[in-house]
Design a protein around this nucleic acid. Structure first.
Length: 922
DNA sequence: ACCGCCGGGTGCC
DNA sequence: ACCGCCGGGTGCC
């Protein structure tokens, strides 16, 4: 924390401290600057949702005093310098690498300072002309911020004689656009990681020390990973122009090759062997494609130990002379001992211990070019100042693996299983109170494994992990560090490593924001600085800019390898799974059921028709969903219908209103529409409902309210909202349902259809296990009765259960014991993607979901690696009902998405309304 | 001339 | 900066 503060403080430096920033090594500037910007940015709310207030042409002055250069069209950063001794309003102008270009002219700076300091707007600069000027250059400044700050910013500027040009900035987020974009984005993300599976770099065989033969796709992954670690191709958006390297997005250019990202994201589906691939990488690619020098166990045969010596001596070109002489001695172990101690190379004394520069280069991660440059200098000379700085870190040959506690043991098992037993690989588990905190010891290991929790609790507390320059850092389940403000994320970003990898089965869960953390960890410049990420990627994408999305796609494509279990290599599937068949079984409602359904439908039709006529469909969004919901419940079972739900407008007392809002919240949440919060575009967490019946995350809407002026408005319908009026779901309500359930149990057509199937299956093969899936947990409860009646042994898994209980239930179900349960009642959204239910081979989807992907995911819980039987999926759809229409909606959504990109705003609006009306058949 | 005008020195914040 | 600004030198036309 102190460090952070310190860095920030440095920002306000005056003339003298500027000097240390502008040394020849631009990299150190960049680090200080980007860290400072990062630190500053972490306190601000995120830039998305900002609107453009206007633009203004300003002047950058003092160019002759600074070395930072810019190209035409280049983006520049504006940084306040409150500690500047000549003017506390100073605003500094810097290019992407943090090299100062000049200052904003003082009068303008004086006007901007107040706005920037109070976070009323974020100011961004682009230089379009005059880049070759000696003294001053013009800069186009754009002011971005929250809608509610717009007027005060415009006013403030104009009071000082600066008129912002507000033309063309009409990106106001109307209700429709908001909904539309959150919707569109989600789909864009779903596709973001598609098509990254074509083999990129051929195949590579693993080193001999990898005992398990790699599958084809694993060899391809290995090849790709090695290439990512070794090759020096240009990162995306950079091209060579003459002598310079040029960034096509920011227009920044540099003399030197921009720093490469040595690493990336391996985002293969679960079960494709990411762990094995990483183990192979560790053993295979130590330096320039040469395998990790490992000790062979002292073995029985002379021949083997001879081979071991040969193996060692092959490595001599990589290792110090000292080791070379040791090889003449015939024992293996001492060599290893010497070797590792030599490799650990504590440089604390400040003298160069590396004698073989190639090897040194391997450890320091520099290219052989810098290695050969160094060769020309006197090897024995003492370190220069900057070299000494680097040597505070212990250079190591070690790979650090960070994972969640739950997979820790898996890593250890996998090392055990996949590494040749004749090879001694030093794997150290850095965990538990007795862990060895010696940097020297840790950096002499081949692999150190630890957890995110250990890392973050060590962080800031003389963490040995942060005092080592790792050869490689691997983040397992890397998506869990998506929140950049979390201590864990900070701890991860602070690690020093030559190569960086993120493993994740689900790289983007919800939004672009999550991706920043990954990009920052990988050090993909300039996006590791939040400001540039926001400007170039995040804001364009959240505002629906097509180019922004394309850039994001290019970026992701560049750093990611992702294959799914459905991917193919050379026309063959990566892994062969048993066949899966999906049947739709139409269910006919009984006469009384049909009558009830039609009654509800007519009623709903009238209501929605009225909203459409009034143009208030969106304001009554919750009601529309509620109507649909009731129809869907009719299709399943009459007892699912909530008895209350009269008109909201008629609420007499506050208590009654509250009651109804809770009911609506329940409906919205249970509607299975995969409810998103329109503020964070993420699934709602800690849901609250406003008086206008829109659902948000509590923290999100609280932020909206606190940043608004006197009157806060609902982001969806602009009704007035107050913190005191937010209603949340009372916890007891969840449980209370059970008590009201059974006066007299009755069946329904759908229940009959299911039972018929289950009984038929049991008589055919009693060992078959089934998943019975519904979005309505109450439907699952209803189903329990007939299951018991017919003597089925079943378990239940839904979202309300504790983690412990879940694990227990899953274990029971997965068991192959004769008396183990054969049926699992599963709520559609229960459990994460990782849930493994391969014991089941039949899936009954009781009701259709809005989002076909949710259904797909659910099916995948049993149709995945480890499934031995054919998988049969049965979807029950009630004939002539809303359920049939939902299937149409699913299909149409996709088409709509495609068209949407090309059409104008008005078109989108109308097509969306038409859509609601048409799809509901109302 | 307690002015205007000229031309040299000078220059970010 | 091929500017603006400052302040000293200067002084009818």
């Amino acid at each position: 924390m102190f460090m952070q503060f310190n860095r920030r403080w440095k920002f306000g430096w005056g003339r003298f401290s500027e000097v240390d920033l502008f040394t020849d090594r631009h990299e150190s500037n960049a680090e200080t600057l980007s860290q400072a910007i990062r630190a500053a940015a972490s306190e601000e709310p995120d830039a998305d949702g900002s609107v453009l207030f206007g633009q203004l042409k300003g002047t950058v002055v003092g160019l002759r005093y600074y070395s930072g250069v810019v190209n035409q069209g280049e983006m520049v950063g504006l940084v306040r310098q409150p500690q500047n001794p000549y003017d506390r309003n100073a605003v500094m102008v810097a290019n992407i690498y943090g090299n100062q270009v000049g200052h904003i002219k003082k009068e303008l700076a004086a006007a901007m300072a107040y706005i920037m300091d109070n976070n009323l707007a974020k100011v961004e600069g682009v230089v379009y002309s005059g880049t070759k000027n000696t003294y001053t250059m013009p800069v186009m400044l754009s002011f971005w911020g929250k809608e509610e700050s717009k007027n005060s910013v415009l006013e403030h500027m104009s009071r000082r004689g600066y008129k912002l040009n507000t033309e063309g900035g009409k990106l106001k987020g109307t209700v429709f656009l908001l909904i539309f974009f959150s919707f569109q984005l989600k789909n864009a993300f779903d596709n973001l990681f598609e098509g990254l599976m074509e083999s990129k770099d051929g195949e590579k065989e693993a080193a001999v020390s990898v005992a398990t033969p790699l599958l084809l796709h694993q060899k391809q992954a290995l090849s790709w990973m090695c290439a990512r670690e070794n090759k020096a191709a240009l990162p995306p958006f950079w091209e060579k122009r003459g002598e310079l390297y040029y960034n096509t997005l920011t227009c920044f250019s540099a003399k030197e090759l921009p720093e490469r990202v040595r690493g990336g994201i391996l985002a293969d589906d679960m079960g494709l062997g990411k762990t094995l691939t990483v183990i192979a990488l560790i053993l295979t690619n130590f330096h320039k494609g040469k395998p990790l020098p490992v000790e062979k166990c002292v073995s029985r045969s002379v021949l083997q130990s001879f081979q071991a010596i040969c193996f060692m001596s092959n490595l001599c070109s990589l290792i110090t002379k000292c080791v070379f002489t040791c090889v003449q001695v015939e024992k293996v172990s001492p060599i290893k001992a010497k070797m590792t101690s030599q490799m650990a190379l504590t440089l604390e004394e400040g003298s160069v211990l590396f004698e073989d520069l190639d090897f040194a280069a391997a450890l320091s991660g520099s290219t052989s070019d810098t290695g050969s440059k160094k060769k020309k200098t006197d090897k024995k000379s003492s370190l220069t100042q900057s070299e000494f700085q680097q040597c505070i870190f212990i250079e190591s040959r070690t790979t650090l693996i960070i994972c969640p506690l739950s997979v820790l043991s898996n890593w250890l098992d996998q090392f055990e299983q996949h590494v040749d037993p004749n090879v001694k690989l030093n794997v150290y588990l850095y965990y538990g109170p007795e862990r060895n905190r010696s940097k020297k010891f840790l950096s002499s290991q081949d692999v150190v494994i630890t957890t995110y929790n250990v890392l973050s609790s060590d962080f800031g507390n003389k963490s040995p992990l942060h005092g080592i320059s790792w050869l490689r850092v691997v983040l397992d389940e890397g998506h869990i560090i998506r929140n950049p403000n979390a201590q864990m994320s900070k701890a991860v970003l602070d690690l020093k490593a030559q190569r960086r990898w993120i493993l994740s089965g689900t790289p983007i869960q919800n939004s672009v924001r999550d991706l920043w953390m990954l990009v920052a960890f990988l050090g993909l410049k300039p996006f590791d600085t939040r400001e540039w990420w926001n400007r170039v990627i995040q804001r364009p994408v959240t505002q629906g800019d097509r180019a922004g999305l394309q850039h994001l796609q290019t970026l992701v494509k560049y750093i990611t390898l992702r294959r799914t279990k459905n991917s193919e290599v050379n026309g063959r599937p990566l892994v062969s799974l048993p066949e899966k068949k999906v049947y739709v079984e139409q269910v006919e409602l009984s006469q009384p059921e049909r009558e009830e359904y039609e009654l509800a439908r007519t009623e709903g039709k009238n209501t929605i028709g009225r909203y459409v006529a009034e143009g208030t469909v969106l304001r009554n969004y919750a009601d529309v969903l509620a109507i649909l919901m009731r129809l869907r419940q009719h299709c399943c079972h009459p007892d699912l219908l909530a008895k209350i739900s009269s008109d909201l407008g008629a609420a007499a007392t506050p208590a009654e209103l509250r009651e109804r809002l809770i009911e609506k919240l329940r409906l919205v949440l249970a509607s299975g529409s995969d409810e998103e919060c329109s503020v964070c575009l993420d699934s709602v967490r800690l849901p609250v409902i406003t008086h206008c019946a829109h659902v948000y995350c509590r923290p999100c809407i609280a932020q909206v309210i606190s940043t608004s002026g006197q009157v806060a408005r609902c982001p969806l319908c602009r009704s007035e909202i107050k913190t005191s009026e937010l209603v949340e779901f009372p916890q007891e309500e969840m449980e209370e349902e059970n008590s009201t359930k059974s006066e007299r149990w009755r069946t329904s057509s759908k229940v009959q259809a299911l039972m018929g199937n289950l009984l038929r299956l049991r008589s055919k093969d009693s060992s078959i296990k089934c998943l019975v899936v519904s979005q309505f947990t109450r439907f699952l409860t209803i189903l329990e009765t007939p299951l018991r009646e017919h003597g089925f042994s079943f378990v239940r898994l839904d979202g309300t259960m504790t983690q412990k209980k879940r694990t227990q239930v899953i274990q029971e179900f997965q068991s192959s014991a004769a008396d183990s349960p054969t049926i699992m009642l599963l709520s559609l959204k229960a459990g994460g993607v990782g849930l493994n239910l391969t014991a089941a081979s039949h899936v009954f989807l009781m009701d259709p979901a809005w989002n076909p992907a949710t259904e797909e995911q659910c099916i995948d819980r049993c149709h995945r690696l480890g499934q031995k039987r054919k998988v049969v999926v049965t979807k029950f759809i009630v004939k002539d009902s809303v359920e049939e229409n939902m299937v149409k909606i699913q299909r149409k959504k996709q088409d709509l998405m495609e068209k949407a990109f090309g059409s104008t705003n008005t078109d989108r609006k109308t097509s969306r309304i038409d859509d609601i009306v048409a799809l509901m058949e109302l």
